[in-house]
Design a protein around this nucleic acid. Structure first.
Length: 604
RNA sequence: GGGGGCGUAGCUCAGUUGGUUAGAGUGUCGGCCUGUCACGCCGAAGGUCGCGGGUUCGAGCCCCGUCGCUCCCGCCA
């Protein structure tokens, strides 16, 4: 007989009755009846009830066992007594009569109970992550993550993509985040950078003629965390392909994404619907107008409309909105809400730094639409009708207003849309709604520094021909440049950015020009991205690709709202590993080898 | 870097207007219990109220500072 087990703890069934078997696992739960003891033994595969009576040889050993001890039991599989079967347990028809028991490892009193599904403080969970990972929910999430990765790989292979590894020790890459640096021992004062993404490498792979590349790629960015964004490191499904248009890239990834979502949609036990390919496409400008965000949550039925012209009219005398961009957010059925509903939203808007959130409640008075609320008296009937029409509102609804400079009004309207949608219970449940956001602007105006900046990835292809692009002059063509769009695209699911990509700019002259417009002299562009620029001078195929945020996919499918719940060993929000104690001091010897001296910040 | 929330027994939490000896559940330890599956019953031990300072006759509670975790803003195309 095997030293530790003949079966797993999730395996035994009625057909095994009569066999002598051996199981190993952790004590999930111990129930001591004095006369007999039940031990629920748990391993990766499941739980099996084991039982022993005082006269039995191994009783003394089993009697000492406590939660989370690791034990090996040998004994006979028996049918459960009439009426004592457990229908909730796959192994619940049988139990193990313990004949021999061996303690493999005892456990101290637990800082974090494994049994049960209570919430525990993040600090405890991370410091004892090995215990937290034993718990059912996290254990399942991590297995889901592995299954998703396997599925993504298979689906990419099915479409003739090939997986390649790219370097971890490399040079600073073109993404805009802060780099993690690794000091060089052999080159004093010089540093490697960990890749923010394999961006340049995957483009070089295309130039090298490998065509359809993908990788489950680790990425490193020294930026602060959020609930949906781990600090420091994360994984992407990174892909790139040659001789493709934007439509080709879309067609390649849509079945992968919808396929993997469909495959795992049942994970939470609920039936969740998944949008089929092709996904809806929304131009960036439309997204900012109707959703107030470039991450539209399509489960929310509310659509924002611009009503600036209505408030600009002479017959509308509400001075606070004059000369501003005014966005209207309909709140279907909100007329029935108590005053506190409106006050709470107004307080919330103030906490977001807005002066407030104006609103009117629409009512029907003898077939005529009238407005109620603090600012209703400033809006004559004709204007009210126009506003109601623009957001498809009717009597019984309310309409909120966000008024500010255009970008701020759009943002506030977007946040209000999300909040109102949730408060009114309008969010479609149990659905994954996908869309492409396309036609991003190439540049944006940096008001602080009074100059033109790249708005997203500087390596995307502008949506104009080479000749007209090369003719642009930064200062004189400001308006034209800010209106210029690029072949850059995101997929958004339920308000989360799932992936981001672009058709790449592979023309060295256009690239130098693009950087020049953003204020980088050619010498600097050559110095920073010379490797890739140079490659483009030796026969570069048209190419494009994208990268899917792996943790976001797992998070959505797991039904979790925090990325730590789908990460095996996450850092705290402050970027520390409480289990391994990272970061930590380097020894004097290490620093000397690396030619480094630490200068601590002044304490004031 | 900034703003909000939290920090009380091993763990999860309660703790009134600032007032006597800081409580409960769970776990641990001891006793009882032969059919439980969150087993049950009885008892015991277990506290730097995150840390430091202050106000007060008196602070878990109020004030100041600080540390940790977290959510958000900045940042992350």
């Amino acid at each position: 007989m095997h030293a530790y087990r003949t079966h797993t703890c999730g395996q035994l069934r009625k057909t095994d009755v009569g066999q002598t078997v051996r199981l190993s696992g952790w004590v999930n739960r111990r129930r001591d009846h004095g006369g007999l003891i039940f031990i629920d033994l748990r391993d990766h595969y499941g739980v099996t009830q084991c039982v022993i009576e005082p006269g039995d040889a191994a009783f003394a050993v089993v009697d000492t066992a406590r939660s989370e001890w690791v034990l090996t039991f040998t004994g006979k599989v028996v049918d459960r007594l009439e009426g004592t079967a457990n229908a909730d347990l796959p192994t619940g028809q049988v139990e193990l009569r313990i004949e021999q028991a061996e303690v493999q490892s005892a456990a101290q009193e637990l800082p974090l109970p494994v049994f049960g599904d209570m919430d525990y403080p993040e600090e405890t969970r991370l410091a004892y992550r090995f215990l937290d990972l034993r718990r059912e929910r996290l254990h399942k999430n991590i297995m889901l993550r592995s299954g998703i990765i396997r599925s993504l790989r298979n689906r990419m292979h099915e479409q003739n993509f090939t997986e390649f590894q790219t370097p971890i020790l490399t040079a600073s890459s073109p993404e805009g985040a802060r780099d993690f640096l690794v000091p060089s021992r052999r080159y004093p004062g010089q540093f490697y950078a960990l890749p923010q993404a394999p961006q340049q490498f995957k483009q070089l792979i295309q130039v090298a003629g490998f065509d359809r590349y993908f990788q489950i790629a680790p990425c490193f960015r020294d930026e602060d965390g959020r609930a949906d964004r781990s600090p420091g490191e994360f994984y992407q499904l990174d892909m790139e392909m040659s001789f493709v248009t934007q439509d080709d890239v879309f067609a390649a990834i849509e079945p992968v994404l919808s396929g993997v979502f469909e495959e795992f949609a049942g994970f939470t036990g609920k039936t969740r619907t998944v949008d089929k390919a092709p996904f809806r496409r929304i131009p960036y400008a439309q997204a900012m107008l109707e959703f107030g965000s470039d991450k539209p949550d399509l489960r929310n039925p509310i659509r924002i409309a611009d009503v600036s012209t209505v408030f600009g009219r002479a017959d509308v005398e509400f001075k606070a909105f004059k000369g501003k961009t005014v966005r209207a957010i309909p709140a279907p059925g909100a007329g029935a809400q108590a005053r506190s509903f409106f006050d709470k939203l107004n307080d919330w808007a103030r906490s977001e730094g807005a002066p407030g959130l104006g609103y009117v409640i629409l009512e029907d008075e003898g077939g005529v639409l009238t407005g109620k609320g603090p600012i209703a008296k400033f809006i004559p009937a004709a204007a009210l009708a126009d506003i109601a029409k623009s957001v498809n509102a009717k009597a019984g609804d309310a309409v909120f207003f966000a008024a500010d400079k255009e970008d701020r009004a759009a943002r506030l309207a977007g946040l209000a849309r999300t909040r109102i949608g949730h408060e009114l219970g309008l969010i479609e449940p149990d659905a994954f709604r996908f869309c492409w956001v396309v036609d991003y602007p190439m540049y944006e105006w940096n008001e602080d520094e009074k100059r033109i900046d790249f708005s997203h990835n500087p390596f995307s292809m502008p949506q104009t021909d080479r000749e007209s692009f090369l003719k642009f002059s930064g200062a004189d063509d400001k308006d034209a440049l800010l209106a210029l769009k690029v072949f850059q695209y995101d997929v958004v699911c339920n308000g989360y950015e799932m992936l981001s990509g672009a058709i790449r700019n592979r023309d060295p002259d256009v690239m130098l020009k693009a950087f020049e417009i953003a204020g980088y002299p050619n010498s600097e562009t050559e110095a920073r991205f010379g490797g890739m620029l140079n490659a483009f001078r030796f026969g570069a195929p048209p190419h494009g690709g994208l990268a899917v945020g792996l943790e976001r996919v797992v998070m959505l499918l797991a039904g979790e709202e925090n990325i730590r719940e789908v990460t095996m060993f996450p850092l705290t929000q402050q970027g520390q590993d409480l289990l391994m104690s990272a970061p930590s001091d380097a020894s004097a010897k290490q620093l000397k080898e690396l030619h480094l001296k630490v200068v601590y910040p002044d304490k004031t």
